[in-house]
Computed example of a mutant assay.
Amino acid sequence: MPRYEYRCRTCGDTFELSRPMAESSAPAACPHGHEDTVKLLSTVAVGGTASTPAAPGSGGCCGGGCCG
Protein backbone atom coordinates (compact mmCIF):
# COMPACT_ATOMS: atom_id res chain seq x y z
CA MET A 1 0.00 0.00 0.00
CA PRO A 2 1.44 3.43 -0.91
CA ARG A 3 2.55 5.89 1.76
CA TYR A 4 1.61 9.54 1.43
CA GLU A 5 3.17 12.46 3.26
CA TYR A 6 1.06 15.28 4.69
CA ARG A 7 1.75 18.52 6.57
CA CYS A 8 -0.54 20.13 9.11
CA ARG A 9 -1.07 23.83 8.42
CA THR A 10 -2.09 24.43 12.04
CA CYS A 11 0.92 23.00 13.92
CA GLY A 12 3.42 22.41 11.07
CA ASP A 13 3.81 18.70 11.86
CA THR A 14 4.67 16.41 8.92
CA PHE A 15 3.27 12.87 8.97
CA GLU A 16 2.79 9.86 6.69
CA LEU A 17 -0.23 7.66 6.07
CA SER A 18 -0.52 4.33 4.29
CA ARG A 19 -3.70 4.29 2.26
CA PRO A 20 -5.02 2.98 -1.05
CA MET A 21 -4.32 5.11 -4.14
CA ALA A 22 -8.05 5.70 -4.51
CA GLU A 23 -7.98 7.55 -1.16
CA SER A 24 -4.82 9.60 -1.80
CA SER A 25 -6.84 12.83 -2.21
CA ALA A 26 -9.10 12.22 0.78
CA PRO A 27 -8.69 14.57 3.75
CA ALA A 28 -6.16 13.42 6.35
CA ALA A 29 -6.35 14.52 9.98
CA CYS A 30 -3.14 15.50 11.77
CA PRO A 31 -2.06 13.09 14.56
CA HIS A 32 -2.75 16.00 16.96
CA GLY A 33 -6.37 16.24 15.76
CA HIS A 34 -6.11 19.22 13.42
CA GLU A 35 -8.06 19.03 10.17
CA ASP A 36 -6.23 21.64 8.03
CA THR A 37 -3.65 19.44 6.28
CA VAL A 38 -2.11 19.36 2.82
CA LYS A 39 -0.69 16.41 0.89
CA LEU A 40 2.98 16.91 0.00
CA LEU A 41 4.65 15.96 -3.24
CA SER A 42 7.21 13.36 -2.29
CA THR A 43 10.33 12.44 -4.15
CA VAL A 44 10.96 8.76 -4.67
CA ALA A 45 14.41 7.29 -4.30
CA VAL A 46 14.90 3.92 -5.91
CA GLY A 47 18.04 1.98 -5.20
CA GLY A 48 19.49 -1.21 -6.51
CA THR A 49 21.36 -2.49 -9.48
CA ALA A 50 20.32 -3.53 -12.93
CA SER A 51 20.28 -7.27 -13.50
CA THR A 52 21.34 -6.88 -17.14
CA PRO A 53 23.19 -4.00 -18.76
CA ALA A 54 21.37 -1.91 -21.34
CA ALA A 55 22.08 -2.78 -24.95
CA PRO A 56 24.05 -0.15 -26.90
CA GLY A 57 21.73 2.20 -28.75
CA SER A 58 18.66 1.13 -26.76
CA GLY A 59 18.37 4.09 -24.43
CA GLY A 60 19.36 7.68 -24.25
CA CYS A 61 17.29 10.74 -24.85
CA CYS A 62 15.47 9.53 -27.96
CA GLY A 63 16.05 5.81 -28.31
CA GLY A 64 19.79 6.00 -28.74
CA GLY A 65 22.15 7.79 -31.01
CA CYS A 66 21.45 11.44 -30.21
CA CYS A 67 23.46 11.59 -27.00
CA GLY A 68 26.54 9.76 -28.18
Rank of each mutant, 00 (worst) to 15 (best):
E35D: 04
V44H: 15
C62A: 12
C11D: 07
A55N: 11
F15I: 14
K39P: 00
K39G: 06
G59K: 05
L17T: 13
P53F: 04
S51K: 00
Y4Q: 06
V46C: 09
G64A: 11
T43E: 15
T43I: 07
S24D: 03
T52G: 00
G60R: 15
G57L: 04
G48N: 12
G12P: 11
G33A: 10
R7D: 01
C67S: 15
G68I: 01
A22C: 12
G64N: 09
K39L: 07
C66F: 12
T10Q: 15
G33I: 01
T37I: 04
S24Y: 13
K39N: 10
R7C: 06
S42E: 06
A29I: 04
C11A: 05
L40I: 12
P2I: 15
C30M: 13
A50Q: 08
R9H: 10
E16D: 09
S51Y: 01
L41C: 07
R3C: 14
T14E: 12
G48T: 13
C62L: 09
G65Y: 11
E23V: 05
G47H: 09
S42H: 11
C30Y: 02
C8S: 08
H32N: 15
L40H: 00
G65I: 13
C67L: 02
V46D: 08
A28Y: 01
S51T: 00
L41A: 09
Y6Q: 03
A26H: 10
S18N: 09
D36C: 02
A50S: 11
G12F: 07
T49Q: 13
A50N: 12
V44P: 00
E35K: 15
S24Q: 15
A55G: 05
L17C: 07
R3K: 04
G48D: 11
S25R: 15
Y4S: 04
E16H: 06
L41E: 03
A28F: 01
R7A: 14
R9Q: 09
A29P: 00
L40M: 14
S24K: 15
C61K: 08
S25T: 11
G59P: 00
E16I: 08
C11H: 02
T37Y: 03
T49P: 01
F15Q: 06
P20L: 07
C62N: 10
V38A: 15
T10K: 12
T52P: 00
